[in-house]
Nucleic acid binder design. Sequence first.
DNA 1: ACACTCATCTTGTCAGTGACTAGATTCCTC
DNA 2: GAGGAATCTAGTCACTGACAAGATGAGTGT
Lengths: 206, 206
Amino acid sequence: MTTEHSPGTAGRRAYHHGDLRQAVLAAALDVIASDGPGALSLRDLARRAGVSHAAPAHHFKDRTGLLTAIAAEGYDLLARALADAPDLRERGVRYVRFAAAHPAHFRVMFEPALHRADDPGLLAAKERASAELRAGVTDLADGAGTDPRTTGIAAWSLAHGFATLLLTHNLDEPLAGRDPGELFHALAGLTFGRDGTFNGQHRNGI
Amino acid sequence: MTTEHSPGTAGRRAYHHGDLRQAVLAAALDVIASDGPGALSLRDLARRAGVSHAAPAHHFKDRTGLLTAIAAEGYDLLARALADAPDLRERGVRYVRFAAAHPAHFRVMFEPALHRADDPGLLAAKERASAELRAGVTDLADGAGTDPRTTGIAAWSLAHGFATLLLTHNLDEPLAGRDPGELFHALAGLTFGRDGTFNGQHRNGI
DNA sequence: ACACTCATCTTGTCAGTGACTAGATTCCTC
DNA sequence: GAGGAATCTAGTCACTGACAAGATGAGTGT
């Protein structure tokens, strides 16, 4: 239960948890993924970790601090997941896979009311993820006359909408157990070409 | 403040509020739209309406009941907003406009953890909205060999993602005060043809 | 006018929660 | 091994959601 940080004190409950921050984060992700951020209780997380009710506050200041840390971690994971994607379509697939693999992070990231918007760590991670998203679109700025900005919003909307509907169980029936990434890959083929450009550009370019 | 239900008792505070249900609903939508569902407090809503802290419970049973009522009302409003749309593209625009006009409803609708999933009223309203969404896609089932089901998910994802990003303030900068509906109209033109079919169908059909 | 019933609202209460404070314990570094 | 910083405990306060019991008023039939 409580991790013993020193072998010598085996049997006696350690005063220090060892890695309370990680334990609280992990428990919080569990709760959020299954019951949403509203079901989060700092005292419950403390109980799960086997520490007093006020212990988590030292690591995260308050509830908002915990959620801010989760959001920042989420943006960081997303940025890393998107890096080095070959084209826009694959980037979208990775976006969807990220949401499926880290549902708690994803939900908290896109609920601004939950975190401290001016947190430096959050802002930095968000900027990294944002840069990765933008990078995916500039690849196709060489195309026809369509505004790349608008195109980027379209691509982001498609992936984000799919991910959101997935997490809110609105695609459970159509998926029927299939891999969400595969379905999105197929679906993106209807709107994006294999080379990562919009079909509309080709059509307009003819 | 408190509506007097009888002219004779003017000046004396009425024992009955008059329309507490509507007052609580309206206040709840205000709070949710500005600070999210997590900031909802039944006692605060009661205070705003000028009634005792337990009065709202009679109308909504509990917190979940209140949110379920909001979700049901939202699905009902959405179904009505989508009805009689000329084509899929316009249906998408209306979907986005609905989210912008009823942000609180929209947020609660797509957070299943907040409502009682087996509520009959909710299920009925949800089915009405779902039927309207499906109706928009069957219009283009006459097209080429692409799976209409997949096409429907793509269209829904695009509109839903745009709406979600809009409400989470991720499109504030690109929009810069412009009408979200207009931007989505333009954006949908990149993926849907003017007649409400996917560009990809034409391309494949050539 | 009267009794009956039901919906609505009030008052009182309970356990659980987030935030804060002061103090105890342990770790780390010099 | 001493001092300081990090981590955790214990106690408290205001607030919240949920529940129960009772008060008030509206509507209805006679």
